[in-house]
């Protein structure tokens, strides 16, 4: 039976791109294709133009910073005699100032770009992802030649994450203030920012000063790896069975 089924999108992507593919995952009907930065443009060209794929629209281009992925502030396995403060002390995400910002481990492959593609012809979605090879200067080729609509999305990823899109016609900041320093969505950029702005009535102009507020995140970051969700999964299975 199974050989009569048409190949899934993931299988066809594997067959078509072969060596360019780093990984293809399929999860709950969503397909993610991971490619390397070197084959970025050729893969998108094929995905857009070939009749089998025909992804006409680049819906979204998203920058990601994977620094600190999977780290928590609350030990869920051991037993502690300390109280709540053990979860909110330290310098976890959002709890540090500019001067105390965490240092990234070298060659972590922090930065990634994820593009959501939509095929209106085939009514299908695909997420294409690539990790930037160099943490110090993350560079990915620009998609603006293939999808003009990627222009602003790439400017946004550059602004917020400092990912450089090679070949972009107009790679300026877009969301942050004129003259802003830093890339605010990086995980080592403080949540409170580093400067604040106010009107100085003596100088009769707007001035920038270091932030005066303290970092304050109330809820610790907790990762639980237990059977909490078995009930949800059992329910989903029961619903699916009832649906049939």
């Amino acid at each position: 039976m199974s050989e009569n089924l048409p190949p899934t999108l993931a299988q066809r992507l594997n067959a078509r791109f072969g060596a360019d593919v780093v990984a293809v995952t399929e999860w709950r009907g969503e397909t993610t294709l991971e490619v390397s930065a070197t084959s970025w443009l050729s893969v998108f060209q094929a995905l857009r133009d070939e009749a089998d794929f025909r992804f006409e629209q680049a819906i979204d281009v998203c920058g990601i910073d994977y620094m600190g992925y999977g780290q928590s502030e609350w030990d869920t396995t051991g037993i502690s005699s300390q109280g709540f403060s053990r979860g909110v002390e330290g310098q976890g995400p959002g709890r540090f100032r500019w001067s105390e910002r965490p240092q990234a481990a070298p060659n972590e492959k922090r930065y990634a770009v994820a593009v959501q593609l939509l095929s209106i012809t085939h009514n299908r979605r695909l997420c294409v992802k690539c990790y930037c090879p160099d943490d110090a200067l993350p560079i990915v080729p620009s998609l603006t030649g293939l999808f003009p609509g990627a222009n602003w999305f790439e400017r946004e990823a550059f602004d917020l994450y400092g990912i450089v899109f090679e070949g972009h016609p107009d790679l300026r900041r877009i969301l942050t203030d004129y003259g802003f320093v830093g890339h605010p969505f990086r995980k080592d950029f403080p949540l409170i920012g580093n400067v604040e702005v106010r009107y100085d009535s003596e100088k009769q102009r707007v001035i920038y000063e270091p932030v005066s507020i303290d970092p304050r995140v109330l809820v610790p970051r907790v990762i639980r790896d237990d059977s909490r969700y078995d009930q949800a999964q059992a329910e989903a299975a029961a619903n699916a069975a009832a649906g049939k």
Binding site: I59, I64, Y69, G70, P93, A114, G149, F153, E156, R221
Partner: peptide
């Protein structure tokens, strides 16, 4: 999500952003 009680990354794809870029 990386399994935590907070999102690891949340990206909002706003229709107006794409429209205005044209």
């Amino acid at each position: 999500s990386d399994g935590a009680n907070k999102p690891f990354r949340l990206k909002v794809r706003a229709p107006g952003f794409a429209h205005l870029s044209s």
